[in-house]
Amino acid sequence: MSNYSIKDLEQLSGIKAHTLRIWEQRYNLLKPKRTETNIRFYDDEDLKLILNVALLNDNGFKISKIAKMNFEDMKTEVLKLTDRSFAYDDQIHSLIIAMVELDEDRFEKIISTNILKIGFEMSMLNIIYPFLSKIGVLWQTGSIHPGQEHFISNLVRQKLIVAIDGQLYTGGGKKFLLFLPEGELHEISLLFSCYLLKSSGHKVIYLGQNTPREDLNSVYSVHKPDYLVTVITTSPSGPQVQDYLDYLSKKFQESEILVSGYQIIGQDLEIPANVHVMHYLKDIKEYLLSLTHVA
């Protein structure tokens, strides 16, 4: 079970902390617990409740009516809404609820239905990746326990691998080498980059997680890619990130290097000339469109 602050609930539900406190006092919606040092916190049940409340409220239910519902009635109404609504925020809320409940069937249904309705790429860009970004900060701070992270990551990873396998290379395009640094295991963004590149007709050499420098060097020497792509979420970190970027820039001077991730974006780094920071996955898509079109 995870513990959440009221700011965590705000981050995940989209309801301001001030509003949550008013609802708590006026309608007795939430019952926060307290640590031994008297700090308020909320648990998974509180999070599920407030996510359901947020979804219903966003779809026209008055808070006074919602407060009178029991949890099962509330859940029934939410399921009806998410089955017929394709608003991105509603789908993201539903994914968060499925994550907290570790409900694989529900998570699978939400993703598969959206892929059928709007396509894989649009589902990733507008639902799955915003969902991952929404809870990403909580992973970093430990508010979400590792079991929930593994549950989500593995399900999304499976979808990405199936989508990537469906993209066949027919020749032409640029050559991209994709990898994660040593110690880096967060692969979702790199896998989606692989999908975007392959679906755009480019050649991809995929090394994946935890790539030692000597392995990267040996593969590079064989394939001589036009571009290297990496994502740094946890490793390296701190001052080691600048050292790693400088190493990549000097070692692979003949290639352009696309980098992204929590340790890159918004950090005080000196970006070498052949290194380009991708702030969002849409940046990669736009970057691809700037290259020579491949039929």
Rank of each mutant, 00 (worst) to 15 (best):
I15A: 00
I15D: 00
K16R: 14
T19E: 06
T19L: 08
T19H: 09
T19F: 06
T19S: 09
L20C: 04
R21I: 01
W23Q: 02
W23G: 00
W23M: 04
E24W: 09
E24P: 08
Q25W: 15
R26M: 04
R26G: 01
Y27G: 00
N28T: 13
N28V: 14
N28E: 14
L29I: 09
P32G: 03
P32M: 10
R34G: 04
R34W: 14
T35Q: 05
T35C: 05
E36P: 14
T37M: 06
N38H: 12
I39F: 11
I39Q: 08
F41M: 07
Y42W: 10
Y42M: 01
D44K: 01
D44Y: 09
D46Q: 03
D46H: 06
L47V: 02
L47M: 10
L49N: 00
L49M: 07
N52W: 08
N52Q: 11
V53E: 04
V53F: 03
A54K: 09
A54D: 06
A54N: 11
D58Q: 13
D58I: 05
F61I: 04
F61R: 07
I63D: 02
K65L: 13
I66C: 02
A67F: 10
M69V: 03
N70W: 08
D73F: 06
K75R: 12
T76D: 12
E77M: 11
V78L: 09
L79I: 15
L79Q: 14
L79C: 10
K80Q: 11
L81I: 07
T82C: 09
R84C: 12
R84Q: 13
F86N: 15
F86T: 14
Y88V: 14
D89R: 15
D90E: 05
D90T: 02
I92H: 08
I92A: 06
S94R: 07
S94P: 04
S94E: 13
I97T: 02
I97R: 01
A98K: 04
M99T: 10
M99C: 07
M99S: 03
V100K: 02
